[in-house]
Amino acid sequence: MREHNFIGVGGLLYHQSKYLLVRHSYGEYNEQWIIPGGFVKDGEHPSAAVEREVFEETSIKAKSKELVAVRTRQRSEKCLDCYLVFTMDYLKGEAISDGKENSAAGFFNYEEVLNLKNVIPLSKIIIEKHHNGALRSLELVKDIDPYTPDNQFLHLYI
Protein backbone atom coordinates (compact mmCIF):
# COMPACT_ATOMS: atom_id res chain seq x y z
CA MET A 1 0.00 0.00 0.00
CA ARG A 2 1.26 3.46 -0.90
CA GLU A 3 2.25 5.71 1.99
CA HIS A 4 1.92 9.04 0.19
CA ASN A 5 -0.66 10.96 -1.82
CA PHE A 6 -0.74 10.38 -5.56
CA ILE A 7 -2.59 11.39 -8.70
CA GLY A 8 -4.00 8.99 -11.24
CA VAL A 9 -5.52 9.72 -14.64
CA GLY A 10 -7.94 7.97 -16.95
CA GLY A 11 -8.77 8.61 -20.60
CA LEU A 12 -12.29 8.27 -21.95
CA LEU A 13 -11.75 7.69 -25.66
CA TYR A 14 -14.90 7.44 -27.76
CA HIS A 15 -14.06 6.71 -31.39
CA GLN A 16 -16.32 5.50 -34.20
CA SER A 17 -19.17 5.02 -31.70
CA LYS A 18 -17.04 2.80 -29.45
CA TYR A 19 -15.25 3.15 -26.10
CA LEU A 20 -11.63 2.15 -25.51
CA LEU A 21 -11.14 -0.23 -22.58
CA VAL A 22 -8.31 -2.37 -21.24
CA ARG A 23 -8.44 -5.49 -19.09
CA HIS A 24 -6.04 -5.05 -16.19
CA SER A 25 -3.62 -7.85 -15.42
CA TYR A 26 -2.45 -6.91 -11.92
CA GLY A 27 -3.43 -5.28 -8.61
CA GLU A 28 -6.83 -4.38 -7.28
CA TYR A 29 -8.38 -4.29 -10.78
CA ASN A 30 -6.89 -7.59 -11.98
CA GLU A 31 -9.04 -9.13 -14.76
CA GLN A 32 -11.38 -6.12 -14.74
CA TRP A 33 -12.14 -3.83 -17.67
CA ILE A 34 -11.32 -0.16 -17.16
CA ILE A 35 -10.74 2.98 -19.18
CA PRO A 36 -6.98 3.22 -19.81
CA GLY A 37 -4.85 5.36 -17.54
CA GLY A 38 -2.31 5.29 -14.77
CA PHE A 39 -0.21 7.40 -12.47
CA VAL A 40 1.08 10.92 -13.01
CA LYS A 41 4.87 11.05 -12.82
CA ASP A 42 6.61 13.63 -10.63
CA GLY A 43 6.46 17.01 -12.39
CA GLU A 44 4.19 15.73 -15.18
CA HIS A 45 0.97 17.57 -16.02
CA PRO A 46 -2.12 15.33 -15.76
CA SER A 47 -3.23 16.08 -19.34
CA ALA A 48 0.16 14.92 -20.63
CA ALA A 49 0.12 11.91 -18.30
CA VAL A 50 -3.20 10.63 -19.66
CA GLU A 51 -1.91 10.92 -23.24
CA ARG A 52 1.23 8.99 -22.29
CA GLU A 53 -0.66 6.33 -20.33
CA VAL A 54 -3.24 5.71 -23.08
CA PHE A 55 -0.42 5.28 -25.59
CA GLU A 56 1.67 3.03 -23.32
CA GLU A 57 -1.29 0.78 -22.52
CA THR A 58 -2.93 0.59 -25.96
CA SER A 59 -0.63 1.99 -28.70
CA ILE A 60 -3.34 4.56 -29.42
CA LYS A 61 -2.23 8.17 -29.91
CA ALA A 62 -4.87 10.46 -28.42
CA LYS A 63 -5.04 14.07 -27.27
CA SER A 64 -6.52 15.01 -23.90
CA LYS A 65 -9.54 17.20 -24.34
CA GLU A 66 -11.74 17.95 -21.32
CA LEU A 67 -11.57 17.16 -17.63
CA VAL A 68 -14.89 15.42 -16.91
CA ALA A 69 -14.52 13.69 -13.54
CA VAL A 70 -12.53 13.92 -10.33
CA ARG A 71 -12.60 11.04 -7.84
CA THR A 72 -10.81 11.15 -4.50
CA ARG A 73 -10.26 8.16 -2.23
CA GLN A 74 -8.73 7.97 1.25
CA ARG A 75 -6.59 4.82 1.14
CA SER A 76 -5.07 5.16 4.60
CA GLU A 77 -4.28 7.79 7.20
CA LYS A 78 -1.24 8.77 5.11
CA CYS A 79 -2.52 8.26 1.60
CA LEU A 80 -5.14 10.01 -0.50
CA ASP A 81 -5.44 9.26 -4.18
CA CYS A 82 -6.96 11.67 -6.65
CA TYR A 83 -8.10 10.34 -10.03
CA LEU A 84 -8.78 12.71 -12.93
CA VAL A 85 -10.70 11.58 -16.00
CA PHE A 86 -10.27 13.33 -19.33
CA THR A 87 -12.13 12.88 -22.58
CA MET A 88 -9.73 12.17 -25.42
CA ASP A 89 -9.62 12.88 -29.15
CA TYR A 90 -8.42 9.93 -31.24
CA LEU A 91 -5.38 10.72 -33.39
CA LYS A 92 -4.14 7.35 -34.71
CA GLY A 93 -3.35 3.73 -33.94
CA GLU A 94 -4.89 0.34 -33.32
CA ALA A 95 -5.85 -0.87 -29.84
CA ILE A 96 -3.17 -3.35 -28.79
CA SER A 97 -2.59 -4.67 -25.27
CA ASP A 98 0.74 -3.71 -23.73
CA GLY A 99 1.04 -7.29 -22.45
CA LYS A 100 2.19 -6.07 -19.03
CA GLU A 101 -0.36 -3.88 -17.26
CA ASN A 102 -3.25 -5.27 -19.28
CA SER A 103 -4.05 -8.51 -21.04
CA ALA A 104 -6.45 -7.04 -23.61
CA ALA A 105 -7.34 -3.71 -25.19
CA GLY A 106 -10.18 -2.89 -27.52
CA PHE A 107 -13.03 -0.68 -28.60
CA PHE A 108 -16.55 -1.63 -27.51
CA ASN A 109 -19.91 -0.13 -28.38
CA TYR A 110 -22.20 0.85 -25.53
CA GLU A 111 -24.19 -2.39 -25.55
CA GLU A 112 -20.98 -4.41 -25.49
CA VAL A 113 -19.71 -2.40 -22.52
CA LEU A 114 -22.93 -3.14 -20.64
CA ASN A 115 -22.56 -6.86 -21.40
CA LEU A 116 -18.87 -7.14 -20.50
CA LYS A 117 -18.24 -8.92 -17.23
CA ASN A 118 -16.07 -7.14 -14.69
CA VAL A 119 -16.18 -3.52 -15.85
CA ILE A 120 -15.14 -1.46 -12.82
CA PRO A 121 -18.04 0.68 -11.54
CA LEU A 122 -16.36 4.07 -12.07
CA SER A 123 -15.60 3.32 -15.73
CA LYS A 124 -19.15 2.08 -16.26
CA ILE A 125 -20.64 5.19 -14.61
CA ILE A 126 -18.54 7.53 -16.77
CA ILE A 127 -19.40 5.63 -19.96
CA GLU A 128 -23.11 5.58 -19.08
CA LYS A 129 -23.11 9.32 -18.40
CA HIS A 130 -21.28 9.95 -21.69
CA HIS A 131 -23.68 7.72 -23.62
CA ASN A 132 -26.70 9.49 -22.08
CA GLY A 133 -25.28 12.96 -22.78
CA ALA A 134 -25.02 13.72 -19.06
CA LEU A 135 -21.22 13.95 -18.80
CA ARG A 136 -20.22 17.58 -18.28
CA SER A 137 -16.76 18.99 -18.55
CA LEU A 138 -14.95 21.25 -16.16
CA GLU A 139 -13.74 23.97 -18.44
CA LEU A 140 -10.26 25.41 -18.48
CA VAL A 141 -10.52 29.12 -17.66
CA LYS A 142 -9.17 31.10 -20.60
CA ASP A 143 -11.08 34.40 -20.46
CA ILE A 144 -9.66 35.49 -17.08
CA ASP A 145 -5.99 35.36 -16.24
CA PRO A 146 -5.68 33.50 -12.90
CA TYR A 147 -1.95 33.20 -13.40
CA THR A 148 0.85 35.02 -11.66
CA PRO A 149 4.52 35.10 -12.69
CA ASP A 150 5.42 32.49 -10.06
CA ASN A 151 2.49 30.26 -11.07
CA GLN A 152 2.91 30.14 -14.85
CA PHE A 153 1.76 26.52 -15.16
CA LEU A 154 -1.39 26.84 -13.08
CA HIS A 155 -4.51 25.45 -14.77
CA LEU A 156 -7.89 26.44 -13.35
CA TYR A 157 -10.97 24.36 -14.20
CA ILE A 158 -14.45 25.46 -13.15
Rank of each mutant, 00 (worst) to 15 (best):
E3D: 10
E3Q: 09
H4C: 07
F6T: 07
I7G: 01
G11F: 01
L13F: 06
L21D: 06
S25W: 07
E28G: 11
E28P: 06
N30V: 03
N30M: 08
W33R: 03
W33H: 12
G37D: 04
E44H: 05
E44M: 12
H45F: 12
H45S: 02
H45Q: 10
P46T: 09
P46S: 03
A49N: 02
E53H: 03
E56T: 07
E56D: 15
K63M: 06
K63R: 12
A69F: 08
A69E: 12
S76T: 11
E77T: 09
L80V: 15
D81P: 00
D81S: 14
D81Y: 13
T87N: 11
L91M: 14
L91W: 02
K92D: 14
K92F: 09
G93H: 09
K100P: 00
S103A: 05
A105Y: 06
G106Q: 04
F107S: 04
N109I: 04
Y110F: 15
L114W: 06
K117W: 01
V119C: 11
S123I: 05
I125T: 15
I126Y: 10
I127P: 10
I127F: 08
N132L: 15
G133Y: 10
I144V: 15
D145S: 14
D145A: 03
D145P: 06
Y147L: 13
P149K: 11
P149A: 09
N151Y: 08
F153W: 05
F153Q: 11
L156Y: 12
I158R: 11
